[in-house]
């Protein structure tokens, strides 16, 4: 039997959860989703649309604690005899997947980017070396925990009827959350489908207005190169690359970034890459699909005008 962890993001099942559902459904007909804390009205229907037959909601746990979550998840997984668990590789998913694999005595694969090959055993494809390569890995245990990279698995609609049940779970945590700060109104970098990113070519933090405006117009998140965050022009949480965040948006726009190997490692799996750089020899042009050689300060206003004029 197959299960997914349906991460509850403030009552909502995000796209990554639906990707996990699509993946699970490709492995077999009966898929159980386990969710911790009650989702919003109508959210169960989203899961049904992607082939989930059963949703088990665990109530009574107020805050995320990986140890506690894994334990209550396992209780249900064990009861339902789930053998293969699909989890989206979000911050929460990454903390949970290894723990669940230990409890299930399962093989674990993280950063999985494609549907498995089951013709000879069970082989998954995972991204390694920060996107500089891929590995095919045979998962040899009977039980398996597979954490998939968001935006890698194609959504497949598969309408089914879903039964929903609620169980009270024991809240037994050794961690206390004492504060949360969320950047409201901004699209989180790890979830963004479009990312506008800028580097040292922007000269200084005072010039980020145009970058933010472009991001806003495109519904994009903003990112930056390492030196930009090292110099505190931008927050560390925006730093992408081998030692920053690895992202895989549909569109990555790099402005005034040279395209050093460590930077490319974190962004090269983006589906479409645009590079804007005044140096025609900038290495980014070798990694880009589209490019403009020129001064960012002249090009950005043109892009903004073109985007705005295309709307309405």
């Amino acid at each position: 039997m197959i299960g997914i962890y349906a991460e509850n993001s403030e009552g909502i099942f995000k796209k990554a959860v639906l990707e996990a559902a699509s993946y699970a459904k490709s492995l077999g007909d009966n898929v159980t989703a386990i969710c911790i804390s009650k989702p919003n009205e109508g959210e169960a229907d989203k899961l049904a649309k992607y082939g989930i037959n059963e949703l088990v909601i665990l109530e009574g746990i107020s805050s995320f604690d990986a140890q506690n979550y894994a334990k209550v998840f396992f209780t249900v997984a064990n009861q339902k005899r789930l053998q293969t668990i699909i989890i989206a590789n979000t911050y929460e998913g990454k903390s949970l997947a290894p723990r669940i694999s230990v409890l299930l005595n399962a093989s674990l694969a993280t950063n999985v980017v494609d549907f498995p090959n089951t013709t000879n055993g069970f082989t998954v494809k995972r991204a390694v070396f920060s996107g500089k390569g891929f590995a095919y890995v045979n998962l040899t245990r009977a039980n398996k925990v597979i954490a998939i990279t968001p935006n890698s698995i194609e959504l497949k609609e598969n309408n089914t009827a879903i039964s929903v049940s609620t169980i009270n779970a024991e809240n037994n945590t050794k961690t206390t959350i004492t504060g949360t700060s969320k950047t409201v109104g901004k699209i989180p970098l790890t979830e963004a489908e479009i990312v506008v990113s800028a580097g040292r070519g922007m000269k200084g933090p005072e010039n980020w207005g145009m970058i933010e405006e472009l991001a806003l117009e495109l519904g994009a998140a903003t990112a930056c190169s390492k030196p930009v965050s090292d110099m505190h022009w931008r927050p560390h949480s925006e730093h992408v690359g081998q030692t920053g965040i690895t992202i895989k948006p549909n569109l990555y726009i790099a402005i005034g970034i040279s395209g050093a190997i460590q930077h490319l490692a974190g962004v090269s799996s983006s589906k479409v890459i645009v590079a804007i750089n005044k140096d025609p020899e900038a290495p980014f042009f070798k990694a880009a699909d589209y490019g403009i050689v020129g001064d960012a300060f002249e090009i950005l206003p043109q892009l903004l005008t073109a985007i705005k004029s295309g709307k309405n």
Binding site: S269, Q302, I307
Partner: peptide
């Protein structure tokens, strides 16, 4: 738990398609 059976390098990108810096709207 698992066996790494095979590796693969990312597919090389096609040559970049460049747009005129005086007419950046074409990119959009």
């Amino acid at each position: 738990y698992s066996v790494y059976s095979q590796f693969e390098s990312p597919v090389a990108k096609q040559a970049v398609q460049l747009f005129d810096s005086q007419n950046a709207a074409q990119l959009i």
